[in-house]
Nucleic acid binder design. Structure first.
Lengths: 240, 240
DNA sequence: TCCGTTCAGGTCAGCGCGACACTAACACCA
DNA sequence: TGGTGTTAGTGTCGCGCTGACCTGAACGGA
């Protein structure tokens, strides 16, 4: 029935890395994503999202995981389905339907990517300036992923995915400021986070700096069913 | 590359129809969705979501529209992509990946469905009791669609899709009460809707009943870009 | 010892929302 | 014709969340 049609997966992986501004000084974090340079037609030489074909016996998310690891070496712990793109002429060489997954990774994991001639991190908000036009409709896909991150993702998810096991509230706030692109009041941010129940305090503190040490916190996953349904990001039972 | 794999589309169409409670009295509206009885294996005799195969030259949404019209006669004006289900053994007869679309339709449009031996409306919250277990993983798909409707859809969209061109606030409130399954305070509902800017008052009123006539309102679409991105339901440029 | 910096917590005003009382405008009926 | 019932629509109050700002706590460094 539905033949002569290829099913692919792509992934939009977002990481907060130091800004690659050529000038010095500016040490701010910026959203980056890994891109792969195409070596074959169509769009040979252009940069594209990591991805590949789905094999008959693997889950869609497994295909995304596998192709991501094959091309970039990244192995994120959690992938979320973003959208399925299937316009008839997305690819000039035939009908390709792409199920796109997205994930957030920490900077240490992001460092696992073997940067090379054909793999690189690119600043999500300046793709055009840094790598030129993306292959296929991948620029549109990235835009949609960024919109989802900025409008739909909560404290716990961002903390858990962008920071380590434990973190200070200042670190969590810094991550949020980088994602949202605006300054947040430390006191109000603290209250807001505490009220959300997304983090819990640990006994430890982070010392060493020339000021009062900060308490360390840990992300606490939503109790899975407390909201009576599917939380939007993490912790939804993976759908088939 | 990615062969031996079928791509299908399914649709979850939601309409508010009078409750089919056998007993008298209860005239409340209930969420219903159209189901189609399968005539072939697998799952012959079981009820399933309307859907079918994607042909090589049509958009995914067009395939959803076409198969929905072929099986039920429904032609909703707008379809929204819900999720793509692709677990390896969803279908016992081979690998099938289903891109699921969803839409809300008004009762008059819903009446266009030619009810028969193999097509019927079923109450969304009592599928098991009324039609037994659905084919494939369609019950899971319906659950996810209901969750999305109840938690993600705003005033304007519900008004526009479930009601006519103009409507009273009482009608809009009734629709929301039916969707959410709980009573809403008329005064607070009015203020909340007004503040959202999702509706605008018209000059007309609806008279005829034995009480003060109610002003008619009209749904106003979000200004498409006011939020600087993709509004969640209606009015997002259809993605590829 | 003093000082600068950051952590941590508190206060206060404004806003949105739920609960509830009240007025307005029609149809119906005695 | 005027009273009555019913629903439309408005006003008010209190609570909780949020932004803006202030104060004390705890460190390293001069």
């Amino acid at each position: 029935m539905g033949a002569s049609l290829e099913l692919a997966v792509s992934t939009v992986i977002l990481a907060l890395l130091p800004g690659t501004t050529a000038g010095c000084g500016d040490e701010t974090l910026q959203l980056h994503l890994p891109l792969v340079r195409r070596t074959r037609e169509p769009f040979a030489g252009r940069w594209a999202l990591p991805g590949g074909w789905v094999t008959p016996d693997e889950r869609l998310s497994s295909a995304a995981r596998r192709t991501l690891a094959e091309t970039t070496g990244l192995r994120p712990s959690y992938l979320e389905q973003l959208y399925t793109f299937g316009a008839p002429h997305r690819s000039p060489t035939g009908r390709v339907v792409s199920v796109v997954y997205t994930a957030l990774v920490r900077a240490p994991e992001a460092a696992a990517v073997e940067i090379g001639e054909n793999v690189r991190w690119a600043p999500a908000d300046r793709l055009m300036e840094t790598v030129g036009e993306l292959a296929f409709d991948h620029a549109e896909i990235v835009d949609y992923a960024l919109w989802r991150l900025r409008t739909k993702v909560g404290y716990a998810a961002i903390a858990q995915h962008f920071l380590g096991e434990t973190f200070t509230l200042a670190e969590l706030r810094g991550v949020h400021e980088a994602v949202l692109g605006k300054h947040l009041d430390p006191a109000n941010f603290r209250r807001s986070v505490a009220a959300s129940g997304a983090v819990e305090a640990t006994d430890e503190v982070r010392s060493g700096a020339a000021h009062r040490p900060a308490r360390l916190y840990r992300a606490v996953l939503p109790p899975g069913g407390a909201t009576g349904g599917y939380p939007p990001w993490q912790s939804r039972p993976e759908l088939g």
